[in-house]
Design a protein around this nucleic acid. Structure first.
Length: 314
RNA sequence: GCCUCUAUAGCUCAGUCGGUAGAGCAGAGGACUGAAAAUCCUCGUGUCACUGGUUCGAUUCCGGUUGGAGGCA
């Protein structure tokens, strides 16, 4: 049986993924799956730049509003859910178009990262984090050195999250996470993806991108971002929830508490968004092998961009 | 007009008891495989405003000039 054909449109935030994907879907009889760690949450529309009903132009979208902010997402669940949607869309004889900026999730889907083994233990994670807090990050790192020197070598002691996960993985499965990672990385290079995919990353001059980001934050403010942020703030959720880390929300919490003024909070949103865009680009450049589409070279003209992408398809 | 303070990295400021300087922020680069919009790592040469003087040597001390802030009239 032939592999299912899919198209993936990625890129940093504010690069125009949404409109490109909708134009493509119209041209290719496609449906859209959003690969975005934050658009998955309900009640967080403006700040996550979620597609609006009008923008969709009748194209079906999936993986939006699947969870409540009080729920935790994770790669394994995300990948399985997307997989199902891809199959469903394919069975309708339509083209699944994946669009999003969460590189970690994208790779998990495209390169079929193995998560079947049950090995996630949040309690253990928290214990390790507590241990590092009480005894210092180096002490936690020493524990890792004992059971998995290879991982200890590549994970910085300050990166408690990773050190804790590596330890958790070992105690849950009896194997080192470094061996698991090696296996999964080999899958990526040996091209045994379950999909026949074309992977695009939209990009543009850095300064232009930053200007777009700044402008978009202002637009979000005018569209009522503050109300959304206030709502989330008022829920009094645990600050460790993924949804509480969303840029465009958490920066306003100190403002609601009266600790900073509004302009400072808005500047912080812009800055964090810029930094995030930078991290996304680093991921796409080094953790994947996409076709880069420099949209500013096409003057941001949608027909030209779509035409460029279509050149690589079929 | 007079007096006082001030002029150092894109920004906010340290500092050098005289031997050409360093933090935070911004910015840049990177890592990443069950929290990922998360988490973490690396990167700081700039006419030390200009101009004279003292000195072996001045960004540092002294004089003047110019810009800024405050006070008195």
């Amino acid at each position: 049986m032939d592999k299912i054909k899919t198209i993936l449109i990625s890129g940093p935030t504010a690069s125009g993924k949404t409109s490109v994907s909708i134009e493509l879907a119209k041209k290719l009889n496609g449906e859209i799956i959003c690969i975005d760690s934050m658009q998955i949450y309900r009640n967080m529309d403006i700040g996550t730049a979620k597609v609006t009903q009008e923008e969709m132009q009748g194209i079906s979208h999936y993986m939006i509003d699947e969870l409540y902010p009080s729920q935790m997402s994770d790669v394994a669940w995300f990948k399985d859910t997307v997989k199902n949607y891809i199959n469903q869309i394919h069975q309708k004889n339509k083209v699944p178009i994946l669009v999003g900026g969460t590189g970690f999730y994208i790779n998990a889907i495209l390169y079929d990262t193995e998560f079947s083994e049950k090995n996630s233990n949040y309690e253990m994670r928290n214990e390790f984090r507590e241990y590092a807090f009480l005894n210092g990050t180096d002490k936690l790192h020493d524990k890792l050195k004992e059971i998995d020197p290879v991982s200890a070598e590549s994970i910085h002691p300050n990166n408690v999250k990773r050190v804790a996960r590596a330890l958790e993985y070992f105690y849950e499965t009896g194997h080192t996470i470094s061996s698991h990672n090696t296996t999964e990385l080999n899958k990526r290079t040996s091209n045994n993806s379950p999909y026949n995919f074309k992977f695009f990353t939209l990009n543009m001059d850095r300064q232009i991108l930053y200007n777009k980001i700044n402008q978009r934050v202002d637009i979000m403010i005018n569209a009522g971002l503050l109300n959304e942020a206030k709502w989330l703030f008022d829920q009094n959720f645990d600050e460790n929830l993924t949804a509480m880390k969303a840029i465009g929300y958490r920066e306003f919490f100190p403002y609601f508490k009266g600790e900073i003024d509004l302009d400072t909070a808005i500047e912080k949103v812009k800055q964090n968004t810029r930094n995030y865009a930078k991290r996304q680009l680093t991921w796409f450049k080094h953790q994947a092998n996409p076709i880069f589409v420099e949209v500013d070279k096409f003057n941001f003209e949608m027909p030209l961009i779509v035409k460029e992408i279509l050149k690589y398809i079929e």
